[in-house]
């Protein structure tokens, strides 16, 4: 049984300003499953809907965002939940931090800027575990911090005294203190330098390998996915266009969009010319019909303009949504 199963999810932003109403179809028919003990990479360009997808998956659905259709179902070790119908109280008390934790870009918002790091730990641990014994608490946090290889004195510092990389590692330590089943890492290293990025991702990978939980790693940087993720999904304009084990995605991409993304990646030691796609990702308030990639696709066919391609499963656990595959089979 998968840890998380998302079925045919549609989540739209509906706004109305002075009589002009808009619907932004940020997530439009996404299905995916996260298994236990894997790093699932989610890649996509800005405003392709990946942030919205995470919001729904982590249960932070606030107007104007609304789930129109679909299921988001979790199967934790001892209990299961339906994320679209769980009460906020239940979510806060039993799920957040304990089963699902969240690491975001910069992580200044999780660390209170005017309080020492230890206080933030204290707040989270006491609200979720009902600790009153300060000694036991300190012991637990110290053990956790040292297991992760962080210097113990970071606990007594204020967030601004930490470097960006250290702050991100503290955020990871916070997110893993209850050994959650799922860690959602949203662009965790985007603002960091490459050397620091490498260190932070190494730590994330070590933690995952040790506690066998699931990491949902969201970043636009495909090279990071190549080095960290077990499986990678590529999102385009509110839909997943391809999903496969990492080596398949990079060595044998099937969707024209994925093929383009992989081929256009520059590499040190290779100066051969890299092409660029025409056009730009569509505005999700007014997306093109059929396959949303068709206006930019070099292999576009008539059917692509009218019919949304079904997700097809190929050998090797590769899922692709493209009419070219059906065409080839016929």
């Amino acid at each position: 049984m998968a840890l998380l199963s998302v079925q045919n999810l549609r989540a739209y932003y509906r706004t109305e300003v002075y009589g002009i109403s808009r619907i932004v179809r940020a997530v439009d028919g996404v299905s995916l499953e996260l298994q236990r003990n894997e790093i699932y990479g989610l890649a996509g360009e800005s405003s392709c809907g990946k942030t919205t997808l995470i919001k729904v998956i982590s249960g932070t659905i606030k107007p104007p965002l609304r789930v129109e259709e679909g299921k988001v179902h979790y199967q934790f070790g001892s209990f299961e939940i339906d994320m679209l119908h769980i009460s906020p109280e239940d979510l806060r008390r039993n799920v957040r931090w304990k089963e699902i934790s969240y690491i975001m870009q910069g992580s200044m918002s999780v660390l209170n800027p005017v309080r020492r790091v230890i206080t933030t730990f204290y707040d989270i641990v006491t609200t979720h575990q009902g600790y009153t014994d300060r000694k036991a608490f300190l012991g637990q946090v110290r053990a956790h911090i040292s297991k992760l290889g962080l210097p113990p004195d970071v606990l007594n510092l204020y967030p601004h005294q930490l470097s960006g990389g250290m702050r991100q590692r503290v955020a990871i330590a916070l997110a893993t203190i209850f050994q959650p089943s799922l860690i959602i890492a949203d662009e965790p290293t985007t603002a960091l330098d490459v050397v620091v990025q490498r260190g932070v991702l190494q730590m994330l990978k070590e933690i995952q390998a040790e506690s066998n939980n699931t990491v949902l790693l969201v970043t636009h940087d495909l090279a990071v996915h190549a080095n960290v993720a077990d499986r990678v999904a590529i999102m385009y304009a509110g839909r997943i266009v391809e999903e496969a084990p990492t080596s398949l995605i990079f060595n044998a991409p099937r969707h024209p969009y994925t093929q383009h993304l992989i081929r256009s990646l520059p590499m040190i030691g290779d100066r051969s010319s890299r092409a660029s796609l025409p056009g730009a990702p569509p505005n999700l308030a007014n997306p093109p019909g059929g396959c949303r990639f068709h206006p930019r696709c070099p292999h576009v066919m008539d059917i692509c303009r009218v019919e949304v391609p079904e997700m097809m499963t190929l050998p090797g656990n590769q899922r692709v949504a493209c009419h070219l595959l059906a065409e080839g089979r016929r």
């Binding site: 706004t15 300003v17 002075y18 002009i20 808009r22 308030a285």
Partner: peptide, 13 residues
């Protein structure tokens, strides 16, 4: 609220 740049931005889409 109407002339707030943020509202203006939302209005022009």
């Amino acid at each position: 609220e109407y002339i707030d740049p943020r509202t203006r931005l939302r209005l022009i889409g």
